[in-house]
Simulated assay, not measured.
Amino acid sequence: MTNENEQTKLDTTTGVTLFGSWNVRSCYRVTKRELIVRQLKRYRIQVAALTETKIPDSGVCVVNGYTFIYSGTPSQQISKSAHGAAVCLGPEASAAWKNSGAQWEAVSSRIVTARIECRPVPITIIAVYAPINPSNGVKNDIDTCDEFYKTLQATIDKTYKSDMIMIMGDFNVRVGVEQANTVGGTVDNHAIDKQNQNGQRLVDFCLFNSFIITNTFFPHKAVPQGTWMHPKTKQ
């Protein structure tokens, strides 16, 4: 940490700063946000990407010392469709974000960004909630996914080149172990499924930008890796 005569910056070199992501399945009610804050405190997470927030419009709010930077569907266009992404900052990260200019952008109802001055390098956090995998032959679903990745790429192109870019959230993808043999360095051996269309889109996006899919680089139990099953196929 800095002394009191300097701006507060999030220092990732002197201790452990925990990052995480969570599909919260709506948090437009304040009581749900309070529950989220309690869990983030419990796990000592300072920076979290929240998805499927269903909070309309975009803005910033503070709940019990945690800053929610959110973006969702405009109020006049609200439907039952899932939407919304947010970056949630703990007290230390909130102070660092505010003292480094409080930079953020509501890119779309599925993408929101925040930039924090950190040591040793600044970080741009991009919280995303990607569309579900397209149904076979449904052009509208395919166009929605393609538009999402087009917008995400445009967001990447606008970031500071010196920043560390962390994209967190729910990509609604399946990336297979077989990709570790063909795109090693981007995908590693700790995937658990067969790649689907969205998985191919994500791999192509990461290859183009020299990113890695980090959760394939570390061993995890199957339960947290495969967090959703189709109600009919159970896959």
Rank of each mutant, 00 (worst) to 15 (best):
M1I: 07
G185W: 02
I142M: 10
E4R: 13
Q225A: 08
K150L: 12
N133A: 14
R25K: 08
V107P: 13
D170K: 01
G226K: 11
Y149H: 15
Q197S: 13
V203T: 11
I123G: 09
R119L: 14
R115P: 05
A102F: 04
T53P: 10
F68G: 03
Y66H: 11
T233C: 05
A86S: 12
G59R: 12
N198G: 12
I192L: 13
E178S: 15
S58Q: 10
T144M: 09
G226P: 01
D170I: 04
T227Y: 02
Q197W: 08
K32A: 14
R201V: 06
V175D: 04
L50S: 04
R201I: 06
D188E: 15
S135P: 04
T73Y: 00
T2W: 04
P231T: 10
T13W: 00
Y70P: 04
V30C: 05
T144L: 14
S79G: 15
Q7G: 11
T227W: 07
F171E: 00
F218S: 01
G101R: 13
A191T: 09
K194T: 13
D188V: 00
L35C: 04
C27F: 01
I142W: 05
R110P: 12
L202H: 12
E105Q: 12
C206T: 08
A82T: 13
I55D: 01
L207I: 11
G65A: 05
A106L: 02
C88P: 00
I142F: 08
K9H: 09
V62R: 05
V173L: 02
T144E: 14
P56W: 06
W228C: 05
T73Q: 14
S71W: 05
I165N: 03
T17S: 03
T31P: 02
Q153N: 15
G101V: 04
V107W: 15
R110K: 14
R42H: 10
N172C: 07
